[in-house]
Write a protein that binds this DNA or RNA. Sequence first.
DNA 1: CCCCGTTGTCGAAGCGCTTCGACGCTCTCA
DNA 2: TGAGAGCGTCGAAGCGCTTCGACAACGGGG
Lengths: 339, 339
Amino acid sequence: MSGRAVTITEVARHAGVAVSTVSYVLSGKRAISADTRRRVLDSVRTLGYHPNAGARALASRRANVIALVLPLRAGMHVPVLMQFATSVVTAARQYDHDVLLLTADEGPDGIRRAAASALVDGLVLMDVELHDTRVPLLRDLAEPSVLIGFPADTSGLTCVDLDFARAGALCVEHLAQHGHREVALLGAPAVVYERGTGFARRTWEGFTEAAAAHGLTGVALPCEETFEQVAAVVGELLDTRPDLTALVVHNEAAVNHVLGALRQHGRRVPQDIAVVAICPDDIAERSSPALTSVLIPAEEVGRQAVRLLMDKLEGRTVPEGTLLQPRLTVRDSTAASGR
Amino acid sequence: MSGRAVTITEVARHAGVAVSTVSYVLSGKRAISADTRRRVLDSVRTLGYHPNAGARALASRRANVIALVLPLRAGMHVPVLMQFATSVVTAARQYDHDVLLLTADEGPDGIRRAAASALVDGLVLMDVELHDTRVPLLRDLAEPSVLIGFPADTSGLTCVDLDFARAGALCVEHLAQHGHREVALLGAPAVVYERGTGFARRTWEGFTEAAAAHGLTGVALPCEETFEQVAAVVGELLDTRPDLTALVVHNEAAVNHVLGALRQHGRRVPQDIAVVAICPDDIAERSSPALTSVLIPAEEVGRQAVRLLMDKLEGRTVPEGTLLQPRLTVRDSTAASGR
DNA sequence: CCCCGTTGTCGAAGCGCTTCGACGCTCTCA
DNA sequence: TGAGAGCGTCGAAGCGCTTCGACAACGGGG
């Protein structure tokens, strides 16, 4: 490597054409004869030319970079966040864009800075709360943005997420079909609900409503993440609700503790009690027994977010809300349950 | 927001000075009278001026962006990765740089592209293997880079990491002090060792050598991450080694399974068996009992990596290897052990 | 009192690219 | 056979910024 980088001027000289011709070959924005194209591409290859990103951004007013705004707050399950992040990067690359990582600790200023300096063409925000302080900012930003998660008021925005209400309901329906009459939801830590995190609340509501609709007794509880606290909640539940035969767990970090607590209390899964989780597949598969679960389709959500953002960048109009339908995978933690 | 962005020309006009003067006020590269400086800064503020990143990069040949190259491979503990990532972003912002996220699935080409296009000024690579294919590329890249983790041959590179050998030894020493005579290491999944992941191997070696040095019987085993597999290994260990009184666990995902397995086998921690973990503090604290642990100082490593990169960007020479000293925090999983 | 070194400011030349308008060809159709 | 319509290519004008050299204005030392 070393030395100065190859410029488009050198490529043009090497191929014996004008600079603009090289540019058109590379962008495909004007017709170019097959012969010229071949010669230019040859020169590009032999010289090892890479267009200068800054110059390109300056001249075209497009940086070909999008921002990914990560939160990092208590109670968020990090591996899922990471899945979102990597799928956003991968999807962005498919549209020939790169991804700039912005964290929450710079606050709204960071977003404004990146947008105003034309560092990025658009934004993807993760883990949006019901009353997110970043939302007003997005509304009057010139750059388009897409939210992963739904704030309370989605007007003027573009949001994508799994349909968590449906996910909660799906778990209940599955259990109802298997004859369970009394079920419990173990959710996120209390702080997550208090903060107004949409997906946690919506699961809760979906669970509660579906239980009512199917005539089940359903109780929903927040759930902390240390073994001791989980064991306490589980113990309490088992003691006070003798007819309880199924648990829905919507808390990645607590899933294994729940199973451990049940083991400790001498309950077998699924013979004594059924368990359904809402979590990534790898967690469900790695538990013992393997858990029937509704997976968080992080990869799909990330891809959709990028697709929507690209549509907006092209000037196409996109729907305000996009809800991905959950699917339930039956594994060993409910299968044998024939009561 | 909306409309076209404010340019330096408009600021200059508004403040009644030349464009270059505005530039010098902002960069501080030439002396400017207090009065002029104030007027310019006022204009900047009232107009809401943000320098265009592309133009700046083009003219100054510095993008003020660094790349963070993430792997994503089996057996890596994601939350730790995420800690690295966020600390790199935070540290970079302190040097007025942004972070571009590159993933491994584009391979070395992604690195080359980002560097050659002047999208980034330098690179931080995470989770480097002993024989990493990206390393030769880095050696002949014009852009400086810093590795988190040590490859087998570090010549011509800059590497930072926790001193894992020392971490393994520290655990042994702590246990030796508490009178333990036979100890076991439960490490990463076998695939991680086979792949040649430096930090896993170095912990193993540090553990083994320290055990020998202190006259302890020490056995080291890889450890998979499902509860069943962990329980099997733990069961086997307890059965075949009746004198075993302490476990060192270097596997974030398996830690809780180990505790669960010990519970299942009726062993109390720390009365019957002591446990030391090498893992982030939050995991150690959230376990029950809270674990004596050597923490992975992810935040410190990320910060150092950025500092080293900035030094290289400034043309300063930096050491090839930087090893961070581990510290052991005593908690409940070894404290009461008085044997 | 003259010369020279400072200090503060300006103008202009790029940085490497995209894109617009122009222009010379070659075809086609009347 | 000549006008008009593409097609393929070129030159030049920026995009918004940094940085270099120039140059007033001012003071201090000989």
